[in-house]
Structure formats: C-alpha cells, structure tokens
Simulated assay, not measured.
Amino acid sequence: MRRFVVVAAAGLSLAGCSSLSLDAFKSAPPTATVQLESAPSGANAVASSGESCKTPCSITVAATDFSVTFSMDKFQPVTVPVQVVVTPGDFTTSATAAATPNPVVAELQPVKPVRKPVKRIRKPKPAASAPAPAESSPFPSPAAAPAPAR
C-alpha cells in the first residue's frame, strides 16, 4: 500500500504541470568579454549591441558580431568591426565564444581645424602727386585745359 501512495502522489504533482519543459537543462547562451583600448585613452566606446564605457575598459557581449565606435572631443570617430566565433559545447562542456580582435584598439586622429578665409583689408595707397608734364609732351596738361563754353 505504501508504494501506491508514493506513485499516486508523484502522479498528482506531475499532472498539475500542463507541459514538461527541458529549459532547466539548457545552458545560458555564450558571451564574450572584449577589452577596449584607444590612443589617446579616455575615449567613449559604444558597441552596436548597446554596451558602452570609457577606455581602457572591457565589455561583455552576446555571441554575435558587432562593431565598436570610439569617439572623443577634437578627434575623428573610429568604428572597428568585431567578429565573435562560437565553439559549441557538448554534454561535458558548455559553448564558448571568442572575439576577434581582442583587445579592440583604435587610434584616434585629431580633427583638422577648419580655417576660415582671412579677409585682408588693403589700405589705399596714398595719392601720388601728378608728375610735372614734360615740356616736350605732345599732349596738353589737363590742368591747363580751357573750360568748356556754355
């Protein structure tokens, strides 16, 4: 009689479940930890998957390819693609993920300043005194011209 009670109790506890799930046996999806560095350090690093930090730092991302954009004031932004390779596991080991490149290094280039054209204001040359007309000139002097008649 004792066996019947134990089997009945186990049957009732399983009967309350509408479905039997094996989710408890699944492992978490693999993640990769990636080191981020920049020259100069202190740049903002933002991954396309949403993680961000200030270099040097590290982020943990899901096992998918992504890119990291490094930005800093007075420097041009740099985007570096990162490939994540997943090695599947078996019954004794879990899956692993490795990122390439790791560490992700970006060399930021300074922004070249935009030069505005400089307007040069030219000073007018001082009026030179008219040279004295040569006496042998075939043309009459404008100062000696007769006034037009009215």
Score class of each variant (00 low, 15 high):
residue 123 K to F: 10
residue 93 T to H: 15
residue 14 L to Y: 05
residue 114 V to P: 03
residue 73 D to F: 07
residue 58 S to V: 02
residue 108 L to R: 00
residue 94 S to L: 07
residue 25 F to I: 09
residue 16 G to I: 04
residue 20 L to R: 04
residue 144 A to N: 15
residue 137 S to F: 05
residue 136 S to H: 10
residue 116 K to D: 04
residue 42 G to L: 08
residue 11 G to M: 12
residue 55 T to M: 08
residue 106 A to L: 04
residue 32 A to T: 02
residue 71 S to P: 08
residue 16 G to P: 01
residue 100 T to D: 14
residue 93 T to P: 05
residue 28 A to S: 12
residue 132 A to W: 08
residue 71 S to D: 09
residue 85 V to N: 15
residue 95 A to N: 05
residue 97 A to Q: 05
residue 16 G to S: 10
residue 106 A to W: 00
residue 34 V to F: 01
residue 56 P to T: 07
residue 76 Q to D: 12
residue 37 E to F: 05
residue 150 R to V: 00
residue 7 V to E: 02
residue 106 A to G: 01
residue 79 T to V: 08
residue 2 R to D: 04
residue 74 K to Y: 10
residue 49 S to K: 12
residue 57 C to K: 02
residue 100 T to E: 14
residue 57 C to M: 06
residue 52 S to P: 03
residue 56 P to M: 11
residue 2 R to M: 00
residue 72 M to W: 03
residue 37 E to H: 06
residue 103 P to D: 15
residue 138 P to E: 13
residue 34 V to I: 14
residue 62 A to W: 12
residue 62 A to R: 12
residue 63 A to V: 05
residue 28 A to G: 08
residue 38 S to N: 11
residue 59 I to R: 01
residue 84 V to N: 07
residue 137 S to N: 11
residue 92 T to W: 15
residue 99 A to R: 00
residue 73 D to K: 12
residue 131 P to Y: 01
residue 85 V to L: 10
residue 124 P to S: 14
residue 29 P to D: 07
residue 141 S to V: 03
residue 129 S to M: 12
residue 88 P to E: 13
residue 26 K to W: 08
residue 108 L to V: 10
residue 56 P to L: 03
residue 146 P to K: 06
residue 133 P to T: 08
residue 16 G to N: 02
residue 1 M to H: 06
residue 89 G to D: 09
residue 81 P to M: 12
residue 26 K to R: 11
residue 77 P to N: 11
residue 86 V to I: 15
residue 68 V to S: 03
residue 2 R to T: 08
residue 30 P to E: 03
residue 103 P to G: 14
residue 67 S to W: 03
residue 87 T to C: 09
residue 129 S to C: 05
residue 102 N to D: 15
residue 14 L to Q: 09
residue 50 G to S: 14
residue 95 A to P: 01
residue 28 A to D: 04
residue 50 G to C: 15
residue 3 R to Y: 04
residue 125 K to R: 13
residue 130 A to C: 07
residue 120 R to W: 13
residue 46 V to N: 14
residue 63 A to Q: 06
residue 38 S to G: 11
residue 33 T to C: 11
residue 94 S to H: 13
residue 117 P to K: 15
residue 29 P to S: 14
residue 130 A to M: 01
residue 30 P to D: 07
residue 117 P to E: 15
residue 73 D to P: 08
residue 9 A to C: 04
residue 4 F to V: 13
residue 51 E to C: 06
residue 104 V to E: 01
residue 123 K to N: 14
residue 11 G to F: 12
residue 130 A to S: 11
residue 131 P to N: 12
residue 55 T to A: 13
residue 123 K to D: 13
residue 148 P to M: 01
residue 86 V to Q: 13
residue 70 F to S: 07
residue 128 A to N: 06
residue 13 S to Q: 05
residue 33 T to K: 12
residue 109 Q to N: 11
residue 50 G to H: 14
residue 93 T to I: 07
residue 46 V to D: 05
residue 65 D to T: 02
residue 88 P to A: 06
residue 6 V to D: 01
residue 88 P to Y: 00
residue 4 F to T: 11
residue 101 P to V: 02
